[in-house]
Design a protein around this nucleic acid. Sequence first.
DNA 1: GTAGGGTTAG
Length: 725
Amino acid sequence: MLDCLRKNLPFQALDIFKRHLQLGFVDNVDHVTVALALKACHGDPKPGCQIHGFAVSSGLVSYITVSNSLMNMYCKSGKFAKALCIFENLSDPDIVSWNTVLSGFQKSEDALSFALRMNLNGVVFDPVSYTTILAFCSDDEFLFGLQLHSLAMKFGFDCEVFVGNALISMHSRCRQLVEAQRLFDEMPNRDLVSWNAILSGYTQEGDHGLEAIFTFIEMVREGMKLDHVSFTSAVSACGQVRNLELGRQMHGLIMKTGYGRHVSVCNVLMSLYSKCEVVEDAKLVFQIMNDRNVVSWTTIISVNEEDAVSLFNEMRLDGVYPNDVTFIGLIHAISIQTLVKEGQMIHGFCIRISFLSEPNVCNSLITMYAKFEAMEDSLKVFEELNYREIISWNALISGYAQNGLSQEALCTFISAIMESKPNEYTFGSVLSAIGAAEDISLKQGQRCHSYLIKFRLDMDPIVSGALLDMYAKRGNICESQKVFCEMPERTQFAWTAIISAYARHGDYDSVIKFFKEMEREGVRPDSITFLSVLTVCGRKGMVDVGRQLFDSMVKEYQIEPSPEHYSCMVDMLGRAGRLEEAEDLVSQIPGQPGLSVLQSLLGACKIHGNMEMGERIADALMEMEPTESGSYVLMSNLYAEKGHWEKVAKIRKGMRERGVKKEIGFSWVDTRVARGSLCLYKFSSGDMSHPQTEEIFRMAECIGLEMKFLREREREREHLQDNLV
DNA sequence: GTAGGGTTAG
């Protein structure tokens, strides 16, 4: 049996050990054998517990090596409490006992306080203690790590390669890459682990992908033997800098060195191919893998969204247990494909296996139901949360905003800032809700503006972009301009927002000026930018400029025109009276022309009195969307202008028969109810519902008269001036 | 008998 253990054949060794016990050959078993057998358990508590029983009954547990091995076995099998129990009952623990328990802690703060207890008990740290404690030191424990570093230097342990490597990785984890590199450079006896430690340091810290790649190339040049850890870090760095070419070369090297089926290496290769948008290659890697772990399955589910649900089922058949990340990927895949049934099923599954205690999973579910336009379900998930972090609030607010429930978005925002600290996404969502809603007072937008200054988020590109867009959509172009000028970093979103703001105001010169400036600064316009620019060209009758821009959008920027772009172009040509050209463009639209394109053309027919084309378009429209009032109204107005009253009557009758109603347009006004409290009042034309209707109409008449008076006075002055000149 | 380096994500 000892032979088997020494030859690293743990299963055979365990079998022999068990047979020994069953046959009662206990006299041959000594403390060394028990320790070796425990090591052979590799963290499997089942045989481990049996051996524990034997160690107690045979009295071998009194050997410190046996107790230490038992503790190690329990630490490795995740039963740390049992290990700690053994430790607390030891009368005379040695350094190995202390180190073993130390290695078993889950949380770094617990490990560090145990290290302090060692110190208080007069236990002198050995190199193993240093390496073990250093492994627990991350960002928050950096000062502790530094103290350990100087202690290790004092005792000369920093020259031990194990300790040196732990020091390098501790500094890497704490983002002290310069120091990590210095330690690495000054190491007299670097090994593969030292190289991997510095390599992974650069990989883990964002923005250092290139340094990681250079380190890897140096490793190859120095003829270092590479292993799975080197490859995982190096491939991950390639993914970070999106260098597919180098990644493929590394994949070749991986195949050559025999790591082509290693689970972690394959996982990171899949991630590389997915980041570089070669999904098929990621799938190929997944196919050749022998054993797939939860990360492999999670990655392929996130990469291959169309097959996510069936992959998830396959994963379960494969006996791999999902974790929170798996559900986040799966729910995301389900959301973007709007698979309502599957979404509800997975929600149920999460409830059954108690995964709703994972806040991230709940946040994904909130977002999923928002995508399904089922905000009541989003709210339900939200209300059942144990702890509401800002991400959960954000998911709910953006859900309301995206579903056009602006009032709810605003109310949720107000509750959110009372409970949590808002971040850039909170303001992004609520500002977009306020921007989209005419029935929310602009005062609320200004209130948000003051909040975001209070939270020092006014210089954030996401927030200032959303703020500028909100003011623009709500008609306050001066504020938009101000926000735009004060922005430290002008994103594509900001440029597009300011351009569309001026487009909405019909300010052709500013739109073209900003558009040219945007191009000059090397910011790529997107389809929305072009939509604004084309709209304003149409309004100002700049048809040839518009056509040129449309062509450059398609050819230079390779932006596929959307139905909105087409209707914008048709509108532009139509307004200019180039009706045949407009109809020609409609016929070029791939697939069926949409509702808005035809409505634009019909509008143009009305302006230019082209009844013949108008009738044709209106027929097509009424067939497409028999309940849409716009087409009926336009056509009836066209007939009315031409004096075809019998046709007007026919259309009006048709509308009544089909139950088509024209939607009423409303306006809003802020009214002060009491000091500080605002009430937004909605009214339509000829509205008599307000209790003070009489006074309101009188006042409106007064204002109208005053306007008329002012206008006449202005005219008189102009007249006088002209005469003087 | 105890120890150092790696991957996935809202």
